[in-house]
Amino acid sequence: MAAPLTVDTVVAKQPAQTGDIVARLVVLFFAATILCVTAVLVWQLWGSSAPSRHQFGLTFLWSSEWNPNTQQFGALPFIYGTVLTSALALLISVPLGVGSAIFLSELAPAGLSNALTFLIELLAAIPSVIYGLLAIFTVVPLMRSYIEPFLKDTLGFLPFFKGYALGVGFLTAGVVLSIMTIPFIISVSREALLAVPREQREAALALGATRWETTWQVVVPYARLGIFGSVFLALARALGETMAVTMVIGNDPKISASLLAPGYSIAAIIANEFSEATGQVYISALVELGLVLFLLTVIINGFARIMIMATTKKGTKRT
C-alpha cells in the first residue's frame, strides 16, 4: 500500500523547488549556529583556562589557597560555597515548593490555581540583581539583628552556628537562593502532578483514603520523577546564580563549618574579580572556575531533563 498522505509525504512527492531548498538551507544554517555557539563556548573555556590547568593540574580542585599576590589559585573554597549555599537553598525551597505545587494541583480550583501560578511565574521573572538589592537592605539586617543571634542562642552549641552574626554569609545566601528557586520547583512539580491520571486519585479515594493520603501515597509517588526533575532544575539554577549571591555571601574565600560565616561562590568570585584580574595565570584560573561551574550545571541539568522527560513520556494525559 502507498504511504499515507501526510504533510511530509505530500511535500516529498513534489519536485524539489528552489525556494524550498533555499529555505531549508537558511533555517538549517541558523539551527547549526546553536551547535556552533555551544562548541565555541566549550573550546573557549578549555583554551582560556590552559595556563591554569597546566600549572596546577587537578590539585586546582582541592587546593584551598586563593592568593593573586603569590599566584596561588585553588578552587575548593568556591566549590564549597557554591554547593553549600545551593544545598541550604534546596533545604528550604523543596518543602515549600512541593507543598505549594500540591496545593495548586490538588486543592485549589482551576481559576485560583492558574492565577496563583501566574503570580509565581512573575516571581521567576524578577532579575537576580533586584533580589540582591532587596537582600542587602532587608534580609541582611534581619539576619544580623534577629535570626542569627537567635540561632546562636538556641543552637550555638552546634558547629554550624558559631561565630559573629554578620548578616552576610552562607546562611543568608542560602535563604535568598531559596526564594529564587521556589518558582522553578513549583511550576515544574505542578505540571508533573497535573499529569497524574484522574483514575489514580479516584481509586485511592474509593478505597477509603483521605484526601491527604491519596495525595501523599498515590499522586506524589506517581509524579516523583517530575518532582525530582524540578529539584535538579532548581539546583542547577542555584549553582549558577550570580548577582544575588555575590551581594550577600560576604566574599571571603574561606571554608567554614559555621553557616553564619562569610564565604564565596564560583559565580561570585568571577563577578568580583574577573574585570580587574591581571596576569595570564590569574585570568585563566578564573576561567577554569567558570569551566568547573559549566560542568557542574551541565551534569545537573542533564539529570533534570532525563527525569522530566521520563514522566512526560509515560503517556499520561495532560489536563
Binding site: 546553536i34 551547535l35 563556548l41 573557549q44 549558577g240 567558570g290 561551574l293 550545571t297
Partner: peptide
C-alpha cells in the same frame, strides 16, 4: 540541536559572559 539548545539555556549567565569576553 534541541538537546544542545536546552543545555545552552541552562548554562549560568556568568559563564556566557566569559564566552563573550573571550570572543
Amino acid at each position: 540541536v534541541r538537546y544542545v539548545a536546552d543545555l545552552l539555556n541552562g548554562i549560568p549567565s556568568i559563564v556566557i559572559g566569559l564566552l563573550a569576553w573571550g570572543l
